[in-house]
Design a protein around this nucleic acid. Structure first.
Lengths: 169, 169
DNA sequence: GTTGATGTTTAAACAAATCTAAATTTTTAA
DNA sequence: TTAAAAATTTAGATTTGTTTAAACATCAAC
């Protein structure tokens, strides 16, 4: 396959994967484009290459910056803004984990802890099942939270090696 | 908080979490309802409790069965079908991991391997960046794939203990 | 200040995902 | 068989999410 076709395929695949995981398709595509761009590129570049509007590009890029995946660059003597993506996949994974932990996991942990104190008849099967499910999910969620925390602190080799070591003793 | 309010809150939270992770909100809500139901329940029960149509209930429940999270039960002398959710959170996590691996991770791995053989000018920065990004993502994706595979084989205590042990020596 | 280039916001158009209502099929029991 | 109960399918309505176009704001150079 030629480079040009490969790029398109990569952008498409990244967009699809993103949308399957609750990330706006266009945002994932812009990220993909930035991932394979050796130099920082402009809004115009993104608009052209992905055929999307200026407004969409602007909002999407700012979202990506909000996720900590992309940064602005300024070139001396130019008003235009340039955008550049961190290409270290380990940083990317950590950044995404960090944001999802903050945006999704933590709110759920909060609700689960509120739900732990729901009152009811001890004998009521409805109540017992509710309590059990909430408590089990709570425990798992806390484990996940801790694992993510460790991941955020760790460096890649240490983390992956530790994980992989566990699986082939 | 009272049980009734707790149930609603749980269903709502589960639905929200699902939709943030690319799972249809209603499907997550039906799953939540089943998770806190001590006994198998009918289509009618689901329709009533979540105020959704029969058709929607039917499709959603079949999806959940397709994900391996819910099963049909037949009661002697009744035509009606009853539905019951596995309440073991470890099984649930594994089941979801298994399906997402199959539905999303594996197709991506396939595309990445195709993209590994894209041809181009060795000196071209565009080509070099493309190759590097694809290859790095490929490596990470393979690690994730292996980790999931291990998770699918492992039992909960072994897995979680192994993970947690790594993080507090 | 004015102009043109760029960045930002937002109302409305558009697209995609979801849901319903109703038609259809299947099943079971009389 | 037939009837009625339940399950399934699907066309279209509805809702939600996304994108655009255009108005507006900001900035830098003249």
């Amino acid at each position: 396959m030629e480079l040009a076709a490969g790029k398109l395929k990569f952008i498409e695949a990244w967009g699809k994967l993103g949308s399957e995981w609750g990330i706006n398709r266009t945002m994932a595509q812009v990220h993909a484009l930035l991932l394979i761009s050796p130099e920082a590129i402009t809004t115009e570049d993104i608009m052209e290459q992905l055929s999307i509007s200026r407004g969409n590009t602007n909002m999407t890029v700012r979202d990506l910056i909000g996720w900590g995946l992309v940064e602005k660059q300024h070139k001396a003597g130019e008003r235009k803004e340039y955008f550049f993506a961190d290409k270290d996949v380990w940083n990317i994974a950590r950044q995404v984990a960090k944001e999802r932990k903050k945006r999704e996991l933590e709110p759920v942990l909060k609700i689960l802890s509120e739900l732990s104190s729901v009152t009811g008849e001890e004998k009521d099967p409805e109540f017992k099942t509710f309590q059990k499910s909430v408590s089990d999910i709570n425990k798992l969620a806390k484990s996940v939270d801790k694992t993510m925390e460790a991941m955020l602190k760790a460096d890649q080799n240490w983390f992956l090696n530790s994980i992989l070591k566990v699986f082939k003793p």
